[in-house]
Amino acid sequence: MIYLLEDAINGILMGSIYGLAALGLTLIFGVLKVINFAHGSLLMVGMYAAYWAVLLTGAHPYLALVIVLPLMFAFGYLLQAVVIQPIFKAEREVREPITVIIVTTGVWYILDNLGLLVFGPQYRNIQDNPLRGKMIEAGEMLISVPKLWGFCAALVTAALVWLFLQKTRMGRAVRATSLDRDAASLQGINPYRIYNIAFGLGTAVAGVAGVALVPFYNVFPTVGVLFDIKCFIIVVLGGLGSIGGALLGGMIIGVIESVGPQFMTATWTEAIVYGLFLGFLFLRPSGLFGVKYDW
């Protein structure tokens, strides 16, 4: 019984990091109305950025945020402004241009292969960092310290993103653009600039997820693929565009993955996750917190 609880807790912690990764995806989708297939690759870039920042400075992994956050924001902002925006402008009349999805798929392949070219195929991890392998003993339970940090990072990031969207002038403009692009531009908002900002923000959030993962997870060029599909499932579970939904969806997946193997072969948990995903698509396609009105 105690193991079950331990697994559940560690599942929630790991799941919140999945949720953090999915948060960036849901943010970008919420505003651009386009699924960003390059999101896992953005996470990969964030992980490499965190990896090198920690390795070269020898600082605490979370101090790497000082470098990773602005770097990732700028990367996402420019990626949208230079590569994706021209397609949006060419398809001005379409609300959810499919061609943009194809472009993000191209970005995914290019980034993953660039990663392979530049960093090589080997798995990298930071051996000597103050979080690696640390455990807290709570009674008979062992709680992973790096995952606990990731959990806190996920909550803080989600809260900050929520505050930005709800309480700032720019956040209001982002929400307005996500609800009605043309009406927003009639209020004096440049929707393409908002797209850049949303993409930058989503990428920066992927950077936070990268920082959270690097202390205990391997970095390699195709690491994003592992998270890509999870992120899509989480976002559908939680409701496209919902911040709380992304976190909760992530935690659900995390708990299934860590408690499931107590009762069955570990590979079966995948089947449960996909089953749940299909079930949601059939019964509640707007997800836990998605708003039907919006889509």
Partner: peptide, 17 residues
């Protein structure tokens, strides 16, 4: 073409962007 999921005040303030 209001921003349906935003409050009345947020709608108004968006107008002053």
């Amino acid at each position: 073409r209001l921003f349906g999921l935003m409050s009345v005040e947020d709608n108004l303030r968006t107008g002053a962007y």
